[in-house]
């Protein structure tokens, strides 16, 4: 399996990358559908978020053991930023699961996908030297806002 993947990466890196992107989209999309079933039938959103986050933590810690000696030397400021990121993203996950408990996937999934727009806006405010906003981004932002508005209208019909 690994050999097949390595061969594909070496021979057709772009095609393999695009295939992996499709697989990632399938993983993210199906995880939202799965979350909907779990929060409505198994456990409340905060419990699902805790166990889900913990599962991810355990697997990622296992994967990052080799990097720990190097990562231990990271400045404390970096860890503080990651703690803040953990607070924000875990709140986001809990809100997402609560939304899935209350509303259909067909409404929650597209509305919750506005994340890149919010990330980019925050990056533009706090990291102006690293991120700039182009005309293409503005058009995208308008489309996202228009889409959210349409879904809001559609959910009340």
């Amino acid at each position: 399996m690994t050999n097949v993947l390595n061969k594909a990466i070496n021979e057709k890196p772009v095609t393999t990358g695009m295939l992996l992107a499709l697989m990632a989209a399938t993983a993210y999309g199906s995880s939202q559908f799965l979350a909907k079933q779990i929060v409505t039938e198994i456990a409340p959103p905060s419990v699902v978020a805790t166990v889900g986050l913990f599962s991810g933590f355990v697997v990622l810690m296992g994967l990052s053991i080799g990097n720990l000696p190097k990562d231990r030397k990271a400045p404390k400021k970096a860890v503080v930023f990651l703690i803040l990121s953990g607070i924000a993203s875990s709140a986001g996950v809990t809100f997402l699961y609560t939304a899935l408990e209350l509303a259909p996937v067909v409404i929650v999934a597209p509305v919750s996908s506005v994340t890149p727009l919010i990330s980019l806006s925050l990056a533009h405010i706090f990291l102006p030297k690293m991120e700039s906003i182009t005309a293409k981004t503005w058009v995208g932002a308008i489309l996202v806002v228009a889409g959210v508005s349409l879904i809001t209208i559609g959910s009340h019909i």
Binding site: V106, V139, G140, L143, V144, G147, V148
Partner: peptide, 12 residues
């Protein structure tokens, strides 16, 4: 709305 967000996220 879904298609509009899809297109918008790609552009962003």
């Amino acid at each position: 709305g879904t298609l509009s967000i899809f297109g918008g996220v790609i552009l962003v």
